[in-house]
Simulated scan of single mutants.
Amino acid sequence: MLCKPTDKFFAHGNVRPVTTTINQISVGGMDNNVYLVSDSAGRALLVDAANEADRILDFARDTGAVELIVTTHRHLDHWYALAEVREGLGVPAVAGVNDAAGIDAPTDRTLSDGEVLTVGRLVFDVIELVGHTPGSIALALRPEFDGAPVHLFTGDSLFPGGVGKTGSPEDFGSLLTDVTAKLFDRYDDDTVVHPGHGKGTTLGAERPHLQEWRERGW
């Protein structure tokens, strides 16, 4: 288990801890990242019940009171354990409106682009990114305090080194356009990216390569 409290911030010469905590584990043969985002009271949101339901349930019960499960997109490796985890935690599950029909596990309601999702003191902006799938979503966790970074949970739409896999030039163009307009053009360089697999990055680290990605076509 990897526990990553978010950064501290300075106010009037004093250092106060940001009370949001992001915990992460990797599960399954494809090393899917599962994220648990908790506020100061332990009220939490789980991102992608991907695999190994027993591990996810133990992880969730150890690190926060989960109130909602979000599935970033319809690919099986991101929701294989969803039905069991949803039942075990007794909480609702949500997914993007244009991907929910492709998720063969209970989805209690859908999320639309531009919607605001609130769990306890946590506030997330829902961002639809079309291309990896027809209705992938990212979540942007708003900073709790001035000076703290935004945290993006991008599923398979954005990784260190490029956007997610797409099946056609049209899908690639759609995804890169969405990622550019809705993420890079909106958020600052210190924005932290938490992808669906592997290590994280920041928008600042990836921004200089946008044109390179467009030219190479993947």
Rank of each mutant, 00 (worst) to 15 (best):
A93N: 03
V91P: 08
L183D: 08
L36K: 04
K4W: 09
V163M: 08
V47F: 02
G200I: 02
T19N: 13
A11R: 04
E67K: 13
L68W: 03
R142T: 02
V163T: 08
D99T: 00
A50I: 00
V192D: 12
P134V: 10
H132M: 06
F184T: 04
I103K: 10
V126H: 05
H75P: 12
G90C: 08
V179K: 03
G155I: 01
T133N: 13
T201D: 09
D189T: 08
G135F: 11
G164Q: 06
F159C: 07
G161A: 03
S157R: 00
L46Y: 04
D58M: 04
S168G: 10
D113L: 05
T154E: 05
T133Y: 13
R214C: 10
C3H: 09
G13K: 01
I127H: 13
E52W: 08
A53M: 02
V119F: 13
D54N: 06
E206C: 08
E67M: 09
E215C: 11
R55C: 09
T6V: 10
N33G: 15
A60I: 00
Q211E: 15
M1G: 14
E115R: 06
A44C: 03
A50V: 00
P195E: 00
S136C: 15
D190P: 14
L2D: 02
V66C: 03
F10W: 11
G96I: 01
E212P: 09
K4Q: 06
A81R: 01
L111W: 04
A140P: 05
N98S: 00
R61V: 01
V119D: 07
A41N: 03
A53G: 03
I137S: 14
